[in-house]
Each structure stands twice: as C-alpha cells, then as structure tokens.
Simulated assay, not measured.
Amino acid sequence: MADQNQQAGDTGPPKGIPALKAHIIANKIDVALWGVRVITVLCTIGYVFPLFNNPVSAFYKALLANAATSALRLHQRIPAREISLSRDFMARFFLEDSAHYLFYSLIFMNVVPNLLILVPIFLFALLHAASYSLTILDTLGQNSLWVARLLISLVEFQSRNILRAAALAEIVLFPVVLIMALFGHCGLMSPFVYYYFVTWRYASRRNPYTRNTFRELRVAADGLTQRPWVPAALASALRSAIDIVCRMAPPVEQQQQ
C-alpha cells in the first residue's frame, strides 16, 4: 500500500534542476529568446543607470539583443525551407512583427543614443521575459522564488498598459527622429525608413495596439480642437495635422470575425 501511495504521488511531472536541464534541452530556442530578452532589459537598465558600464555601449547592446530576439522569432515563425526571394515571401516576411523590430534595430544602430528608442524594445522584452520566467519557475517547482513570481504577476497584470505604452513610444518617436535628423543625430534617411516601420506597426495583424493608439490620439486631438479656449490657429493646425496623418496611414485589411 505504501508503494502504491508513493507511486500515486509521483504522477506529476518532475521538478527541480534536472527538470530545468531537460526543459532547456527540449526548448533551446525559447530559452535562448528568454535569455536575450533578459539581456535587453539589463542593457536598458544599464543605459539609464550607468553605474558599472558605458551607457553608450549598453544602448547598442540593447539594440543588438533586440535584433537577435527578432531573428530568433523569425526563425520560429518562418522555417528555413520556406525562405525564398519571391514577392509572396517578402510580403509574408513584412507581415511579421519580428521583422518590424529587426529593422527597428537596424534603423537605430548608427544614431546618437536616445532613451526613447529603447522604450519599446525594453517593454516588449520585459513582458515576454516575465511570461517565460513563470514557465521556468514552474519547472523548478511551485514554491520556488515566490517573490519573483509576485513581481512577474505584477508585470503580467499590467500587460495591456505595457503594450499601449510601447505603441505610444513608437508613435512619439517619429517626430523625435525627424528632429534628430535635422540636428544631425541620425541619418537623413532615418525618418523615411522609420515611417515605413510605423506603417508596418499600424497594419500589424497580431498587435493592434499601435493602430488603436493612433485612433485614441486622433479622438483626443479632435476633442481638443472643439475646446472653446483653444486658439483658432492652433485648432486649424491640429486639424491639418490630423488630415496629414490620416492620409499617410496605410490601408488595413479587415479581419474576419
């Protein structure tokens, strides 16, 4: 009877370091993604608080880590056997959010460091790293590092706000890139290339937050133009800006319900 009870209690999956090793072997790419995302978070923190490192180096390392994350995700999403130089493949390639952020890193590899550039990649890395950290902690055991579990739960609880903040940073960064180009802090082509990045994010099928944030900003700007205390010249300028942005927006395919 004792043996039967012991066997009944061992029906769950194994936990601890051996289970973690087995998990790493079975999920090499996912674990690598988690590690690179943690590096992105740490490098961003190192850029903001350069206590033991060079902040400029930390800035570019964060971009490189983001590029590595995007490349690994593309490897998962698009198998090597499906890669070709056809038009259909390129269209599929640019539909992937990972492709967007791979080009994001390339755009800013030769610019003067700016904290706003790191905000979107930091937020995405933080959110996804926190999510996979729970998987790792579950592999180690239910009671492992409960403080870390609490912090991760707080991050996941704020996931919608984190995604909205990342989308807002993507949008606000566009005029910042224009100003940087005017002052020689980035290449003259950077605003044009970043415009394409924003259009890709706007048309993203997997992440609607950029599109929704644009809509919220438009509603807020429209409401501001209706305020009686807003000067007529400013209201007219806002309406013109809204019209320009709407004309620049790419067409979006309607998703079937």
Score class of each variant (00 low, 15 high):
Q4I: 07
Q4V: 05
Q7H: 06
G12K: 06
G12P: 12
I17E: 07
A19P: 08
A22R: 04
H23K: 14
I24Q: 03
I25R: 15
N27G: 01
V31S: 04
A32V: 00
G35N: 07
R37S: 01
V38A: 07
V38T: 02
I39H: 08
T40E: 00
L42D: 01
C43I: 02
T44Q: 01
I45S: 07
G46Y: 14
V48T: 13
V48F: 13
P50Q: 08
P50E: 04
L51A: 11
V56C: 12
A58Q: 15
A58L: 12
A62P: 11
A68C: 14
A68M: 10
A68K: 00
A68N: 08
L72C: 05
L72K: 07
L72D: 05
R73M: 07
L74I: 10
H75R: 08
Q76M: 10
P79V: 05
A80P: 07
I83N: 03
I83L: 03
I83M: 04
S86Y: 05
S86L: 04
D88L: 01
D88I: 00
D88T: 06
D88F: 00
A91N: 10
A91D: 15
R92Y: 13
F93T: 02
F94E: 14
L95I: 13
L95Y: 11
D97N: 15
H100Y: 11
H100M: 09
H100Q: 09
L102Q: 13
P113M: 09
I117M: 09
P120W: 12
P120K: 04
F122A: 06
F124W: 11
A125P: 03
L127R: 04
A130I: 00
Y132V: 05
L134R: 11
T135N: 02
I136Q: 04
G141A: 00
G141W: 07
W146S: 13
V147I: 06
A148L: 14
S153H: 15
V155E: 03
Q158D: 04
R160W: 01
R164F: 00
A165C: 09
A165G: 08
A165F: 11
A166K: 00
L168K: 12
L168I: 02
A169M: 10
V172S: 11
V172W: 10
F174T: 05
P175T: 02
V176D: 15
I179E: 01
M180N: 12
M180V: 09
L182S: 12
C186M: 08
M189N: 13
M189D: 15
S190E: 12
S190F: 07
S190A: 15
S190P: 07
F192T: 14
F192Q: 14
Y195G: 03
F197G: 09
W200D: 03
S204D: 08
R205I: 11
P208W: 07
Y209L: 03
R215F: 04
E216I: 02
R218C: 14
V219I: 10
V219D: 15
A220L: 14
G223M: 11
L224R: 15
L224P: 11
L224T: 10
T225Y: 14
R227I: 03
R227A: 00
P228A: 08
W229T: 13
A232E: 11
A233L: 13
L234Y: 05
S236G: 00
L238N: 02
A241R: 05
I242A: 05
I242R: 14
V245G: 03
R247F: 12
M248A: 10
Q254N: 09
Q255W: 09
